[in-house]
Nucleic acid binder design. Sequence first.
DNA 1: CGGTCGGTTGAAGCTAATCAATTAGAGTGG
DNA 2: CCACTCTAATTGATTAGCTTCAACCGACCG
Lengths: 231, 231
Amino acid sequence: MREHDLPEIRALELFRTMSEPSFDELMRAAYMQTFPAQVQLISEGELADFLFILIEGRVDLLGTNANRETTMAIIKPVGTFILAAVLKDAVHLMSARTAEKSRVLMVPACNIRDILAKDGDFARAITIELSGCYRAVVRDHKNLKLRSSVERLANRLIGLHQAQGATGELVLPYDKKTLASLLNMTPENLSRAFNTLKAYGVSVDNDRIALADMRGLETLAKPNQLIDWRL
Amino acid sequence: MREHDLPEIRALELFRTMSEPSFDELMRAAYMQTFPAQVQLISEGELADFLFILIEGRVDLLGTNANRETTMAIIKPVGTFILAAVLKDAVHLMSARTAEKSRVLMVPACNIRDILAKDGDFARAITIELSGCYRAVVRDHKNLKLRSSVERLANRLIGLHQAQGATGELVLPYDKKTLASLLNMTPENLSRAFNTLKAYGVSVDNDRIALADMRGLETLAKPNQLIDWRL
DNA sequence: CGGTCGGTTGAAGCTAATCAATTAGAGTGG
DNA sequence: CCACTCTAATTGATTAGCTTCAACCGACCG
């Protein structure tokens, strides 16, 4: 990367308070790239190799599910993106695409994690915890933007079923009113959604649910690792 | 707090790797509390005084807007909540209420921040950055769960107007297709929403928007500091 | 026994998505 | 320069999804 960009980067909130050697180490590994518009910088589901910092231009963050796509966020300079995936050494929950010609600083993920490890353990634990919270909300947000209410319910049932040992039965861990609110439905609509799912082998006895046709249910639900399976 | 709980807490991912003196310091300040069901632990809009860690029971995280309420998340043991607000020394974006009798460890926010400051600067900068990302998605999520599409558009316009100097005019920073996706609307529906807003003094000329009746628009939009105003 | 609460059902209405058609502007290539 | 194509944006008609309002049921509780 070019010497001339260094002071600008050093001034960023994220790097301002960092020790000189750590900063040097990071920057030796990092590089500045200029991309034209409409370039796919990262793709959902891939591992996070770099932390991206947008210096100039515009980058859109996108989520997809079952050939639907939605804009999750728009990044403007100066902003980082996909920090959480880098910290967790996890897979991207969103894709990123340049919307204009953009200048981007790319810092290899392993260097970020190295330097973080040298720093305080507690601070590091905090970042991991926080990354987890962040990613959970992103998943929720995608869930809401990209699925109908019946799909959300179906996937929730599949998730609970899994978590409870996949015995063909599950018990709702909260009352239906709460479940409805969590899935952004009215209680009435939840009740109807359960009726809709009867055709897919779902039978309801108060808070006990039986799933008789997992294949069919999954065909409807289209479970998606980048939305559903926390952890 | 009781001696007997200490090993259990120490084993949590968040505290496992922490130095002995730091842990002791935190725990001296912290205390364990048992609450009955249906107790409001924190309220939207208040400052974050404590980091909460749920040890037993269940806590619901709630968001509200214009006398609507929604369940944002359900916390089960062992889990932290409102970490981001604590790190940013900011106001809560969600309320928290016990759903069952719950045992909760409360760590004063200032102690968390003190210990974090002693640890590496970079790790600390990362947590702040990440908290910001997290809170942004929470805001987006509330926006989507608690407002209609016309309300979302109206608030977006108010926000852009503000950001551009509140001159009575604003320029859309992205094309309408992107704006629609960001607001979770179809382009057709966005176009109709703009028509609906004509009655509230909004006139559209390509990407240039004029707001002639801020009072009326705000009455419709009901802007909410806990959803809209980033930073 | 009346009261409340969680849940279900039906009817009506509203919000938003879909499908189809049209216009206007930008860019391409003969 | 003029057709040609592409795309963004708008409009209308229709349909799907969801909410709202109202009534009702059964369980639990005083």
